[in-house]
Design a binder for these strands. Structure first.
Length: 518
RNA sequence: GGCGGGGUAGCUCAGCGGUAGAGCAGGGGAAUCAUAAUCCCUUGGUCGGGGGUUCAAAUCCCUCCCCCGCUACCA
């Protein structure tokens, strides 16, 4: 990638090490991975970041329960997320851990910048706390219990506690945030989430407690090590840590910050779209360009929960259906941003109808005709007929169409456009009936098969971000050089397939799923 | 309660002032190169209920009924 190429920085949230990796994690990272691959192929210098959030009381307790020092404990459990990245084929450029020195330094520097600007003050954090739930509750959430006790919604007793805490003066940021949203209408997507954030901020903001003294496992507050930084100030900072902060003069920082996109689940929009830009503005750091909040999955129509025991393990899906098939399904099935339902039936329909029957079979029927009728060599085209031109031009319009969809994170639209060209190509095969031309007009047959091979080349180039392995197999079978698969080269003048070049025997790329139960 | 989104064919959804659309599922046919894949045609809806505006309303207004999200400091 040339040094002058435009930079593109995108992030997943850092995943809490105490969780087991599930489909939610896989989904967020997958969306980023596909976008990262797309942008790389489209000539960008991409920095794709993911990682783990390793601090907090729960981790401290879990480590203690396991009888291990916290650091040793997180070294082990964070490995599960790196393994997931491996299994799912993610192309992240960095994997950040909040326990790394670079991150601790960045957090403390950011804290000092915010404090130096007068936005952090020492106060007292007071509230109704339930030890059993490890959570604070608002007055109106509590019910009166026996003996004047306050009872939390969970049924656990709550007690009034006070502890010294540093506060961030979030209450002063309402107007600035609203102006920021107004000036950056694309900052929060989709629209529905933007509305929610706007109404939340318009409703008024309270100062935010940003330190704790009740546990130790976290980033120490500069000049007051009795406090550790609380939750989001620590976690969110990872995005600038990985860009090189506090070294704002570094090449990395100047290229990649502000980030182009923070991909998040809908449950954590507020932290990313309200607190984070406020923290950064308070420190004099530019806020990110965009936050996209995607939806959640249900399992066969059921809400997913640990207690129901219907958590979806992405690794098991990949073993059952195949990596590219799962990648395709997750991004094709649901308008990105909406909630979606994962079901075996839907998975099977997509992978059989759209991948095996439409796309895979298109490739297979064309390659085997070439193999059998053109002596396993790329056919030589004659002059193009209007039908040929029509199909070629449809494939040329596909890149800009997909680029536009990807810029808006509308993965399903990108795949839909791709599928439309697959459909057009299948219709073209039937209309041209090259098997009939074999006897009547072999020159024409060669032209038709060449046009089809060209269309397949472009389709495979464009499906690489979504289905890297399968697309590579197709491009290999067409004899496309591995350095000719980026968009600029693949769509350049004269980038077409070489007539007469020898081709390997075709092998199927998208197997049909046969249900053993059926 | 407040704010926001939604209720359209069996399913998932698009349409948002001009006499109802797509994909899948269902039915019929063509073709036979191919992973029994492909292609063509087709059944199917009083567009949540009621009222109103308009020459004309899924589409605008009013009202009622349902569903979902947000309504702050576990991540």
């Amino acid at each position: 990638m040339s040094p002058g190429a435009p930079a593109y920085y995108l992030t997943t949230p850092i995943y809490y090490v105490n969780d087991s990796p599930h489909i939610g994690h896989a989904y967020t990272s997958l969306a980023c991975d596909v976008l990262a691959r797309f942008m790389r192929l489209d000539g960008h210098r991409v920095h794709f970041l993911t990682g783990t959030d390793e601090h907090g009381q729960k981790v401290e307790k879990a480590a203690a329960a396991a009888g291990r020092p916290p650091k040793e404990f997180v070294d082990e459990v964070s490995q599960r997320f790196r393994a997931l990245a491996q299994t799912m084929g993610y192309s992240n450029d960095d994997f950040i851990r909040t326990t790394e020195p670079r991150h601790i330094e960045a957090c403390q520097q950011l804290w000092q910048a915010i404090k130096a600007n007068g936005h952090i003050y020492l106060g007292k954090y007071a509230g109704w706390y339930s030890v059993r739930d490890e959570a604070f509750y608002a007055e109106d959430e509590l019910k009166p219990g026996p003996g004047g006790q306050k009872i939390a919604p969970s049924g656990a007793p709550a007690e009034w506690v006070e502890e010294p805490s540093y506060f961030f003066d979030l209450s002063k940021w309402q107007d600035k945030l609203l102006r920021f949203y107004d000036e950056n209408p694309d900052f929060i997507a989709p629209e529905s989430r933007r509305n929610e954030v706007l109404s939340f901020v318009k409703g008024g903001l309270q100062d935010l407690s940003v330190s704790r003294t009740s546990f130790k496992w976290g980033v120490p507050v500069p000049d007051d090590p009795a406090h550790i930084m609380y939750v989001w100030l620590d976690a969110l900072t990872n995005y600038i840590t990985a860009a090189g902060y506090p070294d704002t003069a570094s090449e990395t920082y100047r290229s990649f910050w502000p980030a182009d996109l923070h991909m998040v689940g809908k449950d954590i929009v507020r932290f990313h779209a309200v607190y984070w830009p406020a923290f950064l503005m308070a420190a004099g750091v530019a806020p990110p360009k965009r936050v996209f909040a995607h939806g959640w999955w249900t399992n066969e129509g059921q809400k997913i929960s640990k207690s129901l025991g219907n958590v979806i393990d992405p690794v098991a899906l990949v073993e059952r259906y195949g990596l590219d098939q799962v990648r395709y399904f997750l991004l094709r099935e649901v308008p990105f941003g909406n909630d979606g339902d994962f079901s075996h039936g839907a998975m099977m329909r997509r992978m059989n109808a759209e991948l095996a029957n439409d796309y895979g079979n298109l490739v297979q029927r064309v390659l085997s005709m070439i193999n059998k009728n053109c002596a396993a060599r790329m056919p030589t085209p004659g002059a193009y007929a209007p039908a040929d031109e029509g199909l070629i031009s449809a494939s040329e319009r596909l890149l800009p169409a997909m680029r536009d969809a990807m810029a808006r994170q509308q993965f399903h639209v990108a795949l839909e456009r791709h599928g439309e060209v697959v459909g057009a190509a299948n219709r073209y095969v039937d209309e041209q009936a090259p098997w009939g031309l074999k006897k009547t007009d072999p020159k024409r047959m060669e032209t038709v098969l060449y046009v089809l091979a060209e269309i397949i080349r472009r389709l495979a180039v464009l499906s690489q971000p979504f289905m890297p392995e399968s697309s590579a197999k197709i491009l290999d079978q067409l004899g496309v050089a591995s350095n000719a698969r980026d968009f600029a080269r693949a769509f350049a003048e004269g980038a077409g397939l070489t007539p007469g070049s020898a081709l390997p025997a075709p092998t199927g790329v998208f197997p049909r799923f046969v249900d053993p139960a059926a």
